[in-house]
Design a protein around this nucleic acid. Structure first.
Length: 478
RNA sequence: CGGGAUGUAGCACAGCUUGGUAGUGCGCUUGGUUCGGGACCAAGAGGUCGUGGGUUCGAAUCCCAUCAUCCCGACCA
């Protein structure tokens, strides 16, 4: 038999060129396409459908926890944007500004929102006057624009889709609780839907959001050893409220500034999913975020009875609540197998004359390649349990990788070695930004976060030798 | 924004050095045979050579500019 291992639509192998592999998957799995403007990508239906799954999970969680959706304008007058100093300095270098309306030059130029803090503040100032008006817990689903210098699909775009929650609270405690509980929801998104173990922690002052008092993040570790910041929550204190004149009268009759938070995740999550789970055959989607959970592939479909049997199986699974597609296109089965593997569909049902005769089907697991024969009357239960198993296996695989790539370091040499290996270098840190900067200069790695489980394993900062009290994770980042 | 690489049919590429009628493979269309891991035969369709300018009788080919993509560095979700 002739060796036919050369595939028509093969993608670059991960070990040959991980970055090219990533781009190949984005394109070949039909997640996105490039547009004619740098950094602005087309979210194709299959890619957008993954985002819709994330949206529907989060939207439900947000509403359950008392948040309301709204929509703010696309543009911010420059004069308004300039009110909070740190915020402006943080975002000014990457704003897109509209200077012409119709045929006239604008007096107050319009910034295409890079984030909407100032718009929410302006509005909140109008509608909040009493403690009875608090808390205000708004969220919006939208896109934002940041004029990025180098861009990559999903990971860093000039425009990206996200949700941004903006809340105002009467007390500091309540706002701080909100900041942490939204981070928790993001973490659960990883556990429930994306099969990604996130590392939760607080950002150092150097890495925090422009204008925030505290920033927290979920970080995901990619197979090339780089960390990807996948979502952030911010505690603002009263900074923005003061800058924008948001005030309320407390129960005691005092005039006070409310305490504010904001939080967001973006389509960058698609990048996390692609890299964390993907393999040399393409995308591997976690079952609960997969737009298509089961694909039914008929074999020898021209033979009488095969298509109807395949359709009956697809219908049965749809009725049971799974997201199912029947592929009765006139490609060969081998082509379909490879194609749906590229698209990362978690479970495949093969059904041909032999199966029909025996009253069973063949199930193929995308994540392991394993094939399982299942009797027709056990199919629904088996699909349900297999999706659960696949999710668990994918989470555990990613979790194992994460655990294998956290290295405790006590010296600069160990830090460098750990970063060369890839993943997080866990270090005791003195808290001085100068040491952080030095690490960046020497290794190009940044402080990803100070993880929540702070178990000191030393008391000397490897950089300056002074007393170290904080556990920090350093890594190269996307 | 600095350094490097690449833009020729939907995709992958050859042709460029030495200027002279646009090529190959895959994909696509039609018909037929096939179908348990990317099938086969036959006949077809499809390209202002990224874009703009220049040199030339003549430019995919030489020159300049510009745009895009990828990689490596400085900024971010």
């Amino acid at each position: 038999m002739e060796n036919k291992t050369i595939k028509n639509n093969a993608i670059t192998r991960q070990e040959d060129d991980f970055a090219q592999w990533y781009t190949d998957v984005c394109m070949k799995a039909e997640l996105m396409d490039y547009s004619s403007v740098k950094g602005f990508i087309i979210y194709r239906p299959y890619g957008y459908a993954i985002w819709e799954q994330i949206q529907s999970y989060l939207d439900k969680r947000f509403k359950e926890t008392g948040h309301e959706n709204c929509y703010m304008p696309l543009v911010i007058p420059e004069s308004l944007f300039n009110k909070e100093k740190e915020h402006v300095e943080g975002f000014a270098p990457e704003t897109l500004i509209c200077t012409i309306g119709g045929k006239n030059e604008l007096e107050d130029r319009l910034i295409v929102r890079p984030t909407s803090e100032v718009l929410f503040c302006e509005h909140y100032a109008k509608i909040i006057s009493s403690y009875r008006d608090l808390p205000k817990k708004y969220n919006q689903w939208c896109s934002v624009v940041r004029w990025e210098k180098t861009t990559r699909p999903f990971l860093r775009g000039s425009e990206f889709l996200w949700q941004e929650g903006h809340t105002m609270h009467a007390s500091e405690v309540e706002a701080r609780t909100e900041t942490l509980s939204m981070l928790e929801i993001y973490d659960e998104l990883g556990k429930d839907l994306l099969a990604i173990p996130f590392t939760k922690g607080r950002k150092t002052d150097k890495e925090k959001f422009a204008g925030a008092e505290e920033t927290y993040s979920i970080e995901a570790l990619m197979p090339d050893g780089k960390a990807l910041q996948s979502g952030t929550t911010h505690y603002f204190g009263q900074g923005f409220a003061k800058a924008f004149g948001v005030q309320f009268q407390s129960k005691e009759g005092r005039l006070e500034h409310p305490y504010q938070t904001s939080w967001g995740v973006s389509t960058r999550l698609l990048g996390s999913i692609i890299m964390v789970h993907g393999d040399d055959n393409g995308l591997v989607l976690p079952p609960y975020v997969a737009p298509i959970q089961v694909v039914v592939v008929p074999v020898a479909q021209q033979k009488p009875g095969v298509i109807p049997a395949a359709r009956a199986i697809a219908d049965k699974l749809k009725e049971a609540g799974f997201r199912v597609v029947l592929d009765d296109s006139d490609k060969t089965p081998g082509w379909k197998f490879a194609d749906w593997e590229m698209k990362g569909v978690p479970l495949r049902v093969e059904i041909g004359p032999r199966d029909i005769e025996n009253g069973h089907v063949v199930l193929g697991k995308r994540n392991t390649g394993e094939k399982i024969i299942v009797k027709n009357d056990e199919l629904v239960e088996k699909v349900e349990s297999l999706l659960r198993v696949i999710h668990k296996e994918m989470y555990q695989k990613a979790h194992r990788y994460l655990l294998d790539h956290v290295t405790e370091v006590h010296t600069l040499e160990e830090l460098k070695a750990a970063l060369d290996k890839g993943g997080y270098a866990k270090m005791m840190w003195c808290g001085d930004e100068a040491c952080e900067t030095k690490i960046k200069e020497l290794t190009n790695a940044t402080a990803r976060c100070m993880p929540f489980n702070q178990e000191p394993f030393g008391d000397v900062c490897p950089i300056c030798g002074k007393k170290a009290t904080k556990v920090v994770l350093f890594a190269k980042a996307y």
